[in-house]
Design a protein around this nucleic acid. Structure first.
Lengths: 338, 338
DNA sequence: CTGTTAGCGCATTCAA
DNA sequence: TTGAATGCGCTAACAG
């Protein structure tokens, strides 16, 4: 306390005015401040240990240097990749504020509005609910991540989930599977819905194949997924389900764990596959067949668009799409018995 | 743009002064504003869609409602637990800003200073380096998490890593293991050092037992750990190592993967154990013997102390300690052959 | 109880 | 090229 160094103190120390100090610290002194004064100011700044007060600066400028990412669930390591990508592109100039929604819910208008109170330079919203966009109304540049179907609302970075889902469907049908159980994510994000829809399209569209027998739902957690599976299995078993597909890897782990408890062999009795391709999926036992989602690229791209928006470039509702990649591993196998 | 509603506009709309509006929005109107005016203000706020500008508010008050967590590595799911715990306690009043350090480095003075620019209500620093504390000097209340040996600098929440490490050591020695390899974390945090030291104490102190033969080091990543193990194994093998202990679960996964590539059976040829007890550790194959670290409790406790500090309570350099819990699983087994 | 006033620290006019 | 003055929107002290 009391230890705060202000621009006024620097100005006095350097024998110049606050305005001069401001110009120097913001690098706007090209031909506006004499080299001698620039040097004096720099010296004083160093001696006094002055740091710009971003709060005051933000108030004066009308917007902060904060880029806020609103994301539904960072317990999924997938987000670590997204965040890493964002940070790479943002660099030192902007601080990333990660605002986590409660309980894996989709970002709502409320969260967006709360974030707006900080006058962020930009807002990155992951898998938003459909209803929230009005809240923003040109208050801050906004980029949507993984929000298929919302491209008309704001620049959006999407995963080409359809192609990936199809690839997964093809893989499983080619192994002889005909009846599937699907474990969805309860957050109800569009992206999850599309994963499921594209899969069902592929499977039922392959001619003569039965469609997914039933859809169980759980929040994205190991335990919840295990419980959901345990509950669904009696019915699924009667329906002849030979393969379970999960919206996320974490849920697949839960299913595998629960299936073991039920005495099922993976992939002998049941094939399991999912979306995310976390690192562990390569080494788990059985290793997990999974669709790799380009998390880092997603983050990088979103941040790039945000920067362009901040700089006033009229990003024409860009709609970038990154493709996923299917990794076939031990958890899926051909149907051996009938 | 142009759409920003200010307190002045609300005041005019409600026919009162800005001061009254301020009192109402801050809930400080108990006996200071007439019920009639409170109602009018509330009404106007709703009609106009007014939101407090936290930037201006922060400048005026001298500190923001931001609680900043500086953490070295959110790609480790362990942190998701810590963050969840913090958010539980912080509630709606304070926003949590997660500031991730680059590349899994320990939080340095630089990160702390940058965070200070936002005038946070409090700072939570995870596994800090020893050199950084001067940067804060009473600018903001600070709580250290998992920082053994730094209790004299600030209120600290620690894991009782010694007891856990001892439990792990006992488990392994009781299985007949006498020679150990240890895979450390390169970040060099005190907590990692203590994990190792306590283990060595236990092992060598058990009388007649050989101590850990050698210490390999890697950053906390699956790949790096695998490489470190592959490099260390020839020597370890000659030394008679029968058990490898890792500073984190993620590294243990790497070791298990690498060991497999070398044709080693786990736990037949080699027992593996570690610290963290991530969810996956229960279902990996072999499932992993691991010390559970109380991540959520850690976060909750740190946030509680932070709130107390914010409220001006003189937290007497509290030094809370949470115990870990050993989960024995398949990756460790008794020595069968000699 | 209520309104008026004076900053918070900085960026940005506008004169000089 | 520089400095003094103004305002960003709000809170807190003060006066009514």
């Amino acid at each position: 306390m009391g230890g705060r160094v202000t621009a006024t103190m620097v100005a006095r120390h350097a024998g110049v005015s606050v305005a001069t100090v401001s110009l120097v610290v913001n690098g706007k002194h090209r031909g506006r401040v004499s080299p001698a004064n620039v040097a004096k100011v720099r010296q004083s700044i160093a001696e006094l240990g002055y740091v710009v007060d971003r709060v005051a600066s933000s108030l004066s400028k009308g917007s902060s240097d904060l880029v806020i990412l609103i994301s539904p669930d960072i317990s999924n390591p997938f987000f670590a990749g997204v965040i890493a990508g964002i940070k790479q592109v943002l660099g030192k100039r902007y601080q990333l504020l990660v605002s986590v929604t409660d309980d894996g819910n989709l970002p709502q208008a409320q969260e967006v509005r709360a974030s707006l109170e900080f006058r962020p330079a930009a807002l990155l919203v992951f898998a938003p609910a459909e209803t929230f966009v009005d809240a923003v109304r040109g208050h801050a540049p906004m980029v949507l991540i993984d929000a298929p179907g919302m491209e008309h609302l704001a620049p959006t970075i999407n995963i080409d989930i359809e192609a990936s889902a199809r690839a997964l469907g093809e893989h499983l049908t080619s192994l002889g599977h005909r009846t599937f159980g699907y474990l969805d994510s309860r957050t109800g994000s569009r992206t999850f819905q599309m994963r499921r829809d594209a899969l069902m399209d592929q499977i039922s569209g392959s001619g003569g194949h039965e469609s997914i027998s039933e859809v169980a739902t759980s929040i994205v957690s190991y335990e919840a997924a295990g419980e959901a599976f345990t509950q669904a299995w009696p019915q699924w078993s009667r329906d002849g389900v030979t393969s379970v597909i999960c919206a996320t890897d974490i849920q697949a782990y839960g299913v595998i764990g629960a299936a073991r408890s039920l005495g099922l062999a993976i992939p002998g009795d049941l094939s399991v596959a999912s979306f995310d391709n976390l690192s562990y999926s390569a080494i788990s036992s059985p290793s997990l067949t999974s669709v790799e989602l380009p998390s880092v690229e997603l983050g990088r791209s979103a941040a790039s668009v945000a920067l362009a928006l901040i700089d006033g470039e009229a990003v024409s509702v860009s709609h970038e799409v990154f493709a996923g990649q299917l990794h076939v591993r031990e958890s899926t196998a051909a149907l051996t018995t009938s």
